[in-house]
Design a protein around this nucleic acid. Structure first.
Length: 414
RNA sequence: GCGAAUGUAGCUCAACUGGUUAGAGCACCGGCUUGUGGUGCCGGGGGUUGGGGGUUCAAGUCCCCUCGUUCGCCCCA
């Protein structure tokens, strides 16, 4: 065996940690459900074209981060690097435009060939939502307030801030892009190497540069919001107004941008300073051009995705699992009776564990390790009297109770 | 893809400028306690020091390569 280690950037998620993952995903689904979203599952791999068409040939995701391979039938297949493309594809393929507007929730693993870091894996999980078919800011408001509720219910409200910006409609963006490029072109000699490359590929990104020289240049650059036409401006105003009315706090970050062409109007990110360089915990925006670009009917869309790993890193320990009751048979004869009692209690809804082996001391120790609330001892003495010894694991008090009325005594532990 | 740090027991870490059989705490197993855990005492198992190569009389320690992790950049959730 070459190595038993998992492939770089992948990880085993053991039961304790799984609980956190489940909490994040279930909270997300639960909230989305209340907001009227239905769950959609799309394949975790698609024809490569699905992603190259939606993400554009020049984006980093496509040029260097996709897990792409040829399958045995000769098709080019890619492990999905994000969720929206698959949802959009499924939308078109299933003729879902009949049912607009649509509110969809998804969750599952995504794959990106990147250098792993804290909060960044090659296989990672996302939860996300999309609203399709609503061109007005109502959808933007709903999607963002859903995100806020979700993060609130995870108890993360205090660590996370919402940054919001408008990219404007296609016309406004094109106009701004032109202004920005012509301004920046006058400073080519001073731009950082990275930004120089971004200049023709993705100039808006330069606004976001961390290079000090770039920041100085950008500070005098024409501003995005000055290029917004009337439609775009009122769209954004309506969004901000709606959020305020719902009590959603946000910061208008005029440097927040999205690279791809089909993005428009709303862009937002929920960020934290607790995760080093991977500060973005949930992000999304409006993508009115996407479905049309894929060959479907022109359909407006907006949505977000959140990184489950990053959220679990912020959660810490979290709530304890429900404490079990442990049934402890003493002596071989009690084993089968213990099994009966255990099954009976399980079917009545108790969380019950049965110790398999060892002397009483060992089994008690194990019950303690399991953080049991109570232990039920079944030995020869008990069996002849048809009782069980019920021990409260916190107080240490114990009493014999008849097996018929056992459940009444357990209600406190349920 | 680029730059840097790091890698010793299941976990957290120790081992002076290279120098005998690599230690400790926690965890685990056993005993004190043959039907009673969470505290105590005694004992035990555990490591090709991430892997490979090199320098040296001698390498956990120095050098090279490789793999993993972490941090930053790029990018993103």
């Amino acid at each position: 065996m070459e190595s038993l280690k998992p492939v770089r950037g992948t990880q085993d998620i053991l039961p304790d940690e799984s609980r956190l993952f489940r909490r994040v995903e279930e909270t997300a689904f639960d909230v989305a459900d209340r907001y009227g979203f239905g769950e959609i599952s799309t394949p975790i791999f698609e024809f490569t074209e699905v992603f190259t068409r939606t993400l554009g040939d020049t984006s980093d995701i496509v040029t260097k981060e996709m897990y792409t391979f040829e399958d045995k039938g000769g098709d080019m297949i890619t492990l999905r690097p994000e969720g929206t493309a698959g949802v959009a594809r499924a939308f078109i393929a299933n003729g879902m435009q009949q049912n607009l507007p649509l509110k969809l929730f998804y969750r599952g693993p995504m794959f990106r060939y990147e250098r792993p870091q804290k909060g960044r894996r090659r296989q990672f999980r996302q939860v996300g939502i999309e609203i399709l078919g609503v061109a007005t800011p109502q959808a933007d408001i709903e999607v963002i307030s859903l995100a806020t509720t979700f993060l609130d219910e995870l108890g993360l409200k205090n660590n996370i801030t919402l940054e919001l910006n408008s990219l404007g409609d296609a016309e406004s963006r094109a106009a701004y892009r032109e202004k920005l490029v012509s301004y920046l072109s006058g400073h080519k000699d001073k731009l950082s190497h990275d930004s120089l490359e971004r200049l023709d590929r993705n100039p808006l990104r330069i606004l976001d540069s961390k290079d000090e020289g770039d920041i100085a240049i950008v500070s005098n650059a024409p501003r995005l919001q000055d290029s917004l036409n009337e439609t775009s401006q009122s769209f954004f105003n309506e969004l901000c107004g709606g959020l305020s009315k719902l009590g959603v706090d946000f910061e208008h970050n005029t440097k927040l941008v999205r690279g791809l062409d089909y993005y428009c109007h709303t862009a937002f990110e929920f960020t934290t300073t607790d995760l080093g360089a991977q500060g973005t915990v949930l992000a999304g925006g409006r993508y009115d051009g996407l479905i049309g670009q894929m060959g479907g009917p022109e359909t407006p869309g907006i949505g977000w995705a959140a990184g489950v790993e990053r959220l679990t890193l912020l959660l810490g320990e979290g709530k304890e699992a429900k404490r079990p009751i442990v049934v402890i048979p003493v002596g071989g004869e009690a084993e089968s009776e213990a099994l009966v009692v255990t099954e009976m209690l399980r079917k009545k809804g108790y969380r019950v564990d049965l110790d398999y082996s060892g002397n009483l001391k060992k089994r008690m120790k194990r019950a303690n390790m399991l953080n049991a609330a109570a232990a039920i001892l079944l030995g020869e003495d008990e069996l002849t009297k048809n009782v069980g010894t019920l021990r409260d694991m916190d107080s240490g008090e114990q009493k014999e109770v008849s097996l018929e009325t056992l459940e009444d005594h357990l209600k406190v532990y349920k």
